[in-house]
Amino acid sequence: MSNTTTLGYHDASVLYATTDFSKLNWIELQWASWYLMIGNPVIATGLASFLLHEIVYFGRAIPWIIIDATPYFRKWKLQPNKIPTPGEQWACTKQVLFSHFTVELPVIWLFHPMAEFFGMSTWQVPFPAWSAIAPQVFFFFVFEDMFHYFAHQALHWGPLYKHIHKIHHQYPAPFGLAAEYAHPAEVFILGTGTILGPILYCMFRHDLHIFTVYIWITLRLFQAIDSHSGYDFPWSLQNWLPIWSGAEHHDFHHMAFVNNFSTSFRWCDRIFGTDTKYRAYRARLNAAKKAGLSPEEYARMEIKLNEEAGREGVEAEKVAENAGFGAGWSGKTKVA
């Protein structure tokens, strides 16, 4: 258990009584200054955690709003004929803020006392070495991806889809802000995969620092927002790292309703066969490229295939919503 209990929470200066500040780097000094300024480590950690989430989420989403409003970028839009309107962006923002303050704020605030109970450090400096941080963050990515894959499939089961997950599928062409546009229950269910990895790690290893968790949360938010952006740039990570999902992978899920249930990586969908329609769709697009079509002809072909996938998606959604364990659960559809 963390030694903050023995030192006491009411006088933060006691926490750093034996700390040699001359050996700390700039970030570590700012970290200690924050805890000294707030005075109470519980409040300092809870406030920092929530502010980090809000700043990173909206800070990463705003550039995508600007990109959506700039016609120049349409050539990289995965569904170029579906651009979110300002009204949709604002409605999405209100729902996201509602979930952030009613669901995520309490969870974020309660996470660190629980994790600290199992050995997580919060106010302590210096930070762990990068050689320790990197494998921990990788573990969290792998754990969350697997958790999300199975939880996401479950949310496509009739009753759960109809009453919970349907909200997130309101936009068949997603945009950055819509990453956390969801029913509060879904925010809690899928968010569990994000915080459960660090908690389990603390339970067994007892050597995690919340600074590492902040790195993980930042990267996870970037991943979630970027995968909902609706854009596939030549420099997008999925074009450099084949196992990465990215927007090109997840956009198909929103468009066609079926397939591609994972978040960060493609391997669960490949292993369990829930990417067959997606791979067939990509094969047709690749064949069109190799056929030597002009840019205009290829664009028309892409829109045609998107519309076809969208129509099938509407039918697949009806099947999943009304037939219980049907198309949505297996990732396949009878209307292919």
Score class of each variant (00 low, 15 high):
His100Thr: 06
Asn306Thr: 00
Phe211His: 05
Arg266Val: 11
Phe21His: 13
Met120Leu: 06
Phe233Ser: 11
Gly230Phe: 04
Ile243Phe: 15
Lys290Phe: 04
Asp20Lys: 10
Arg284His: 02
Asp68Ile: 03
Glu321Asp: 09
Leu196Val: 14
Glu307Arg: 15
Ala179Pro: 03
Ile55Phe: 15
Pro106Ser: 09
Trp123Val: 01
Gly191Leu: 08
Ala316Leu: 06
Tyr281Phe: 14
Thr70Lys: 04
Val103Asn: 02
Trp235Phe: 11
His228Ala: 06
Glu116Gly: 14
His169Val: 05
His253Tyr: 09
Ala151Thr: 08
Trp31Glu: 05
Glu104Lys: 11
Gly8Lys: 06
Arg220Tyr: 08
Thr276Asn: 09
Pro184Tyr: 12
Leu15Tyr: 00
His228Thr: 03
Leu293His: 08
Trp109Ala: 07
Ile303Val: 15
Glu180Cys: 07
Phe175Gln: 07
Ile210Leu: 15
Gly246Pro: 13
Met1Cys: 07
Tyr278Ile: 01
Tyr9Trp: 14
Arg311Gly: 09
Leu177Gln: 01
Pro63Ser: 14
Glu248Ala: 09
Leu155Tyr: 02
His254Ile: 10
Thr85Cys: 07
Arg270Ser: 11
His148Leu: 10
Ile164Ser: 03
Pro126Cys: 08
Pro234Cys: 13
Phe138Leu: 15
Ala309Val: 01
His169Gln: 12
Asn322Cys: 12
Ile195Asn: 12
Arg60Met: 11
Ser131Asp: 09
Ala154Leu: 15
Ser131Ala: 11
Met203Asp: 04
Ser229Asn: 03
Ile243His: 09
Gln170Ser: 11
Thr70Arg: 10
Leu97Met: 15
Ala69Met: 10
Phe101Ile: 14
Ala336Asp: 08
His253Asp: 06
His53Ser: 08
Leu78Val: 13
Ile27Lys: 07
Ala129Val: 09
Gly328Phe: 00
Glu180Met: 12
Trp235Val: 03
Trp244Leu: 07
Tyr298Trp: 09
Thr194Phe: 08
Arg60Val: 12
Ile199Pro: 06
